[in-house]
Design a binder for these strands. Sequence first.
DNA 1: AACTTGATCAACCGCCAGATA
DNA 2: ATATCTGGCGGTTGATCAAGT
Length: 349
Amino acid sequence: MGRSPCCEESSSVKKGPWTPEEDEKLIEYISKQGHGSWRTLPKRAGLNRCGKSCRLRWTNYLRPDIKRGKFTEEEERLIINLHSVLGNKWSKIAAHLPGRTDNEIKNYWNTSIRKKLLKMGIDPETHKPRTDFNHLMNLSQLLGMSNLSSAMNTTWGNNNPFGMPADITQLAKIQLLQSLLQIMNSNSFVNMGNPNLLVGNPNLNPLFLNGLNPLQPKEPVVLSGSEEYANHVNGMYSQAQSECSQHEVSKSCADVEGGSNPQDPDYNKINSTSSLENQAEEPLPALVVSSPRMGTFNQMNNGCNMAQTFTKSPSNTIFDDWEKFLEDETTGSYWKEILESTSASPILW
DNA sequence: AACTTGATCAACCGCCAGATA
DNA sequence: ATATCTGGCGGTTGATCAAGT
């Protein structure tokens, strides 16, 4: 069976933006008669529109309880939170945000949140760190440019036409580090569940959480762009996890469309061990950089043959960038210090 | 001022599942 | 049991606007 037409085949119903007059007609009709059958509504209301179009206009725009304006931080957090549990079930997510429509939430996700998460190296579909090589290659190329830029600076000084802002360079380095570690995490090289990893070793402390720039220790980090958002999202995730442990998500999800419903396909997912609760067992790595270890790095390199799977960037692989990065005089001493001190401490990962 | 680019969002399209004949 | 209808949903498109060049 093919798709059934939502409107009379013969009718030349109007499409496109609604006029104020049409809105008025629709509001007046529904407020007096209720919508009844959407299919027959347009005729009854004197509208030359498809029933589907009327329903959409009403539910997404004209309904009296629609909330307008920017999404609040609280709403944004809730959306990310719910999306991690429900996925692209916009209507179910919308059920938790009074006055917000599924369409609005979907748009907001696609235009804003999704991009922010991607920028942060988080896969918006899985809510886990991205490990795709394209992302790494982009960082690698950025890093390559920064290396070139440094070289040019050395040669040309302030007249370097390829000069890149220092914070961009550092951001690229940070993100590259983060991505590499995320790959290691996803390949079980790192036991992120081990609290010692982040807490036990002072050098392995989350590098951003203490507000210090790992590349320039003792200097406060000037948060801008994605770093700022990283902290923001970090907050969201940690709060989401804590809320989840307080059953907020389970509770709110169970309330979807009139309460906990064991027949709801999402019921088990939501009410048993929710994915967020699973994350509590297998917590999401914080959006921070742990310090690198050459031992593990080699292990990764050998164990996965990852370097072989990389296509070479025009100048080098990310491992070459890594090497350059570690050799970089401006950052080298700090990282060498970390490497030395961590190699002396028990292997945590 | 003109043009380009990117972001936003209302609206449409097509599929699906449940209801009904 | 099957065909058809209907409402709902998620994905996508395109118009509009703002910011940048």
